[in-house]
Amino acid sequence: MVKLLHTLQTVDRRVLYALLLLSVTLPFMPTFSNIKVPVKISPSTQKLYDTIESIPEDSFIIFGTDWSAGTRGENGAQTEALMRHVMKKKLRFAVLCFDPQAATLTQTMAEKLQKQYGYSEGENWCNWGYRVQEQLFFKALANNIVSTVKADTRGRAIETLPVMRGVTSAKDVKLLVNINPTNSYTYYIQYLQGPYHIPLVFAPTAVMAPEAFNYLDSGQIAGMLNGLTGAIEYEQILNVVGRATKDSNCLSAAHLLIIFLMIMGNIAMLLEKRAAKANAAMHLGGQV
């Protein structure tokens, strides 16, 4: 028994890695991937959906993406789901990035989806590209979008793009979307949402989500997608099977594995403690 407990406590880390690998690969196989378990739509996701739905067609919105490939697992799926909805709603949007990779990654995603929804770059959407110094940029953008942004990633003056018609300052922006793995979403609150009362919807990684619930409660964020689960819920609302839905079973399997390991680790610790106590008691008894 003691040996078994010791083995459980000191199991090679590579055994745990192998178990994790199995849990995230097997559910991709057709036998498992055909099992569909729905998720319940959380209030924060529903609020986000309702906010986008409430924006009139042809309104101009800022679609901020600040993620790199390092968080693509969550932010990629969220971006795809939100972009689908924005295109479905026929909203005009400009991609704005404060991460250098995001401009290219979002461009690729928009180019992939635009055919499906009859969108074209320049006409219905544009890419403002990578920018630095959020504080300075937003402060100037709020007053004058055209002179602050100047050109899109293709080098075209933005005032010449049909997508930008009638858009001069923050007052012409009807919604802010931010998909962001860091806490720089607060700049959107401090410089655009707060002063101009433009609704902000936010899609953080799950790590950042707990912090953002504070802003959701205060109404500074109008709706939120909580990590990959948020993206799964959103695809379910939109009734599309995208990246997130395909990942759902893997996410469940890996979570169950970790919960199982946490419980086993604690049981092993408790049993070992008890065994050590019993040994000590026996030892003391022998001495007496």
Partner: peptide
């Protein structure tokens, strides 16, 4: 964790 996965909710 259980609340954020489909199987946990089920």
């Amino acid at each position: 964790m259980l609340g954020q996965i489909a199987v946990g909710q089920a």
